[in-house]
């Protein structure tokens, strides 16, 4: 474990806490893409298959349970909760996220480190996570004004993988037998997708104005 990865995990946790706070306290999911939440639940379900078979550390297991639990409960809230579901912006959250699932799965079948069920699903979860934010970014562009909690949620979600990139560079230089170009490639694509969001996020923060993504 290094400081970059720990910061990354805590930033990721922070994004989920911000989202749960928004949904649980103000009982609203306005501006949040259900498609992205469903993709993330799928990412965790396919990545943490080994949660009960491989024990790495208490931290690792606890965090996996938190990510699995929160991602599925957020999907449940947005689909089933009587009040929250009313604020779901169904008309704007129309990105066909199945268009993302299939190519990621096909790519994982072709481009993987080992052709086993677990490894292919794990690779699939990496590729899917890289593009899972797209429905949310599309929804942000369509939403007139983006509220602070939603903006902060997307910011923390984007920042966490950026810390992971630094962690991979750090591990590359400190553990000489460590290289995973598939993970790096997916991580770079994932972080690159946030670049324009980061630009508008910092601009709105600097000028102290409402966050607005150009359509």
């Amino acid at each position: 474990m290094n400081i970059f990865r720990l910061t990354g995990d805590l930033t990721h946790l922070m994004s989920i806490i911000v989202l749960l706070l928004k949904i649980h306290t103000i009982k609203s999911c306005a501006g949040i893409s259900l498609k992205t939440q469903e993709l993330y639940a799928l990412v965790f379900a396919t990545r943490y298959l080994d949660i009960f078979t491989t024990y790495i550390s208490l931290y690792n297991t606890v965090m996996k349970l938190i990510f699995l639990g929160t991602s599925f409960s957020i999907v449940w809230y947005m689909r089933r909760h009587k009040t929250v579901r009313l604020s779901y912006d169904k008309n704007n959250d129309t990105f066909r996220h199945y268009f993302l699932v299939l190519p990621c799965f096909l790519l994982a079948l072709v481009l993987n480190n080992r052709f086993t069920v677990r490894e292919v699903l794990w690779t699939f979860s990496l590729y899917l996570e890289a593009v899972a934010i797209i429905p949310q970014l599309v929804l942000l562009q369509r939403s007139k004004n983006v509220d602070n909690l939603t903006g902060n949620y997307v910011f923390f979600l984007g920042a966490y993988r950026g810390f992971y990139l630094i962690n991979w560079i750090y591990r590359y230089f400190t553990e000489n037998h460590y290289r995973r170009w598939i993970t790096w490639m997916a991580g770079i694509v994932q972080t690159a997708l946030y670049v324009d969001f980061f630009y508008y996020y910092f601009k709105s923060w600097k000028n102290n104005e409402k966050l607005k993504l150009p359509a």
Binding site: T54, I56, F67, Y164, H177, R180
Partner: peptide, 10 residues
Amino acid sequence: VEDVDLKDEL
């Protein structure tokens, strides 16, 4: 050398 299995990360 076999790649370190990255499964120790989240």
